[in-house]
Amino acid sequence: MALAHRIVARAFRAWFWLRRPRTIGVRALLVDPHGRIALVRHHYTRFWYLPGGGVNRNEDMGSAVQREVAEEVGIDDAPIVTIAGVFHNRREYKDDHVVLFVMMVDADAAARLHAADRREIAEARWFAPDALPDTVSPATRRRIAEYQRGATGLGTW
C-alpha cells in the first residue's frame, strides 16, 4: 500500500509542476487537556505532520478542517478555538494557501485518537511539545513553536 501512495504522490507532483494550481489547505493544531499535540504520519513519508488536507469545492475551511480531523484521527467533535495563522506553501510546485486552526479536545475525545484512515495514515499519536520526535517536518515544528509562543503565524509554510 505504501508503494502505491508513493507512486500517486509522485504523479500528483508532476501534475502540479505542469499545471501550477492554486489550492487551499487546512491543518489542525489539535490540543488535548495535557497540552499534547496530535500528529500523524502518512504511509508515503517518514515525517510527522499536523492533521489536515485540502478544502473541497463548495466547502468552507472550518468544515474542511473538522472533516480532515475526523478522517485522519477519528475525532469528529473537536471545536475550533482560533486561527493560528495563514501561510503560503510553494512546495511541490503548488500555489498553496494553508489555514492553521487550533482545536481543543476533552479527555474523552483525546482517548479516541487513532489512525482512522489506515490506507493513508500509518500512525496518529499525541506528543508533548517539548518531546516531539526527530522526524517532525520542519514546517510542523515551526507551527508548534509559534503556537507555544502565542504568535500568529503568517508568511511561508
Rank of each mutant, 00 (worst) to 15 (best):
L30N: 06
L30G: 08
V31R: 11
P33C: 10
G35R: 06
I37Y: 09
A38C: 15
A38G: 12
L39E: 04
L39K: 00
R41A: 08
R41V: 06
R41K: 10
H43A: 04
H43S: 03
T45N: 10
F47A: 14
F47M: 11
W48R: 13
W48A: 09
W48E: 06
Y49Q: 04
L50C: 07
L50M: 14
L50I: 12
G52W: 00
G54R: 11
V55A: 10
V55L: 05
N56E: 15
N56A: 15
R57K: 11
D60F: 03
M61V: 13
M61E: 15
G62T: 00
S63G: 10
S63V: 05
V65W: 00
V65Q: 00
V65M: 00
Q66T: 03
R67N: 01
R67P: 09
E68N: 12
V69P: 07
V69A: 05
A70R: 13
A70P: 10
E72R: 02
V73M: 00
I75Q: 02
D76G: 15
D77M: 06
D77W: 08
D77H: 03
P79G: 13
P79I: 06
T82R: 08
I83K: 07
G85I: 12
V86H: 08
V86M: 07
V86F: 05
V86E: 11
H88R: 13
N89K: 10
R91D: 14
E92F: 15
E92M: 15
K94C: 05
D95L: 11
D95H: 10
D96W: 10
D96I: 03
H97A: 07
V98W: 03
V98A: 07
L100T: 12
F101W: 12
F101Q: 02
F101K: 04
M104A: 15
D106F: 09
D106L: 14
A107G: 11
A110R: 02
A110V: 09
H114I: 00
D117L: 10
D117P: 06
R118P: 06
R118H: 05
E120P: 06
E120S: 14
I121C: 05
A122L: 15
A122H: 14
A122Q: 15
E123G: 08
A124V: 02
R125N: 09
R125K: 09
A128V: 04
A128M: 11
A128G: 08
A128L: 08
P129V: 02
A131G: 01
P133S: 14
T135N: 15
T140F: 05
R141V: 07
R141C: 00
R141P: 00
R142D: 07
R142W: 07
R143N: 12
I144H: 02
I144F: 02
E146T: 08
Y147N: 02
Q148A: 09
A151G: 07
A151S: 12
L154D: 12
